[in-house]
């Protein structure tokens, strides 16, 4: 398997160089670009596996670029932004970006996010906007917004690891997922900053998903792992 090709669009030369170096050290190939024109040049080569896009670029903003890229291709996009704002994150993700990384970030975080996005099936990018929504038993899970909505329409807050675990279970409904695989899936996002065992995360999820005496549809398969015990509809 050849090393994935990362297109890095960042206007600050030093940060561009440092980010590229960090990625290269972890086995990625990096194509640096300072602004939109260079980015389009690289994209024409057609060899890009993922775009790391700074939101605040001179000239065309990253959000505009993201929209333009999404019209032409499905290539995964991770936003990098100096704004830590929730609104910016949601807007970026709604425009079809796959993830969002606030500045300043560590190489470890960056690599974890890149790997997670590359591993994710391209399925929830199919239509760009408003894709990646899954539903089960009245619950709605939105991957781009990283949001869980209850059957009564209330937003339900989960930790990052809990969300990733639930997303992994929903991605493979009614199939047993081994504990080791779940660990891998639910830890990619935050690097290794969360050292919770899958069992703890599952018990928390069960409590948060159990309403009005109805138990959460997550069953334990002894000795193997866990399973989402209900069909999932994808929107």
């Amino acid at each position: 398997m050849t090393a994935p090709n990362i297109l890095l669009v960042e206007d600050d030369p030093a940060l561009r160089m440092l980010t590229a170096r960090g990625l290269q050290e972890h086995g990625f190939r990096v194509q640096p670009a300072a602004a939109a024109p260079e980015m389009w040049n690289v994209l024409e080569g057609g060899d890009t596996d993922l775009i790391l896009l700074d939101i605040m670029l001179p000239g065309t903003s990253g959000l505009e670029l993201c929209k333009a890229v999404r019209r032409a291709s499905d290539v995964p996009i991770i936003f990098i932004s100096a704004k830590g704002s929730e609104t910016d994150r949601v807007v970026g993700l709604e425009l079809g970006a796959d993830d969002y990384l606030p500045k300043p970030f560590s190489t470890r975080e960056l690599v974890a996010r890149v790997r997670a996005v590359l591993r994710r099936p391209p399925l929830h990018r199919r239509d760009g906007v408003e894709s990646g929504t899954m539903g089960f038993e009245g619950w709605t899970l939105s991957l781009p917004k990283r949001e869980l909505v209850s059957p009564t329409g209330a937003s339900v807050e989960l930790t990052g690891a809990e969300f990733d675990l639930l997303a992994a279970l929903c991605d493979n409904p009614q199939r047993v997922i081994a504990r080791e695989r779940l660990i891998e899936l639910s830890r990619t996002r935050l690097g290794d900053s969360s050292d919770r065992s899958v069992d703890v995360l599952v018990s928390r999820l069960r409590r948060k998903l159990a309403i009005e005496g109805r138990p959460a549809p997550i069953v334990t398969v002894r000795g193997i792992g866990y399973m989402l015990n209900t069909p999932v509809e994808r929107h």
Binding site: L15, A82, K83, F105, T107
Partner: peptide
């Protein structure tokens, strides 16, 4: 916001 770029460089 602008301080976060040099901060990101420093972090790396």
């Amino acid at each position: 916001h602008d301080l976060r770029t040099p901060l990101a460089r420093l972090r790396l």
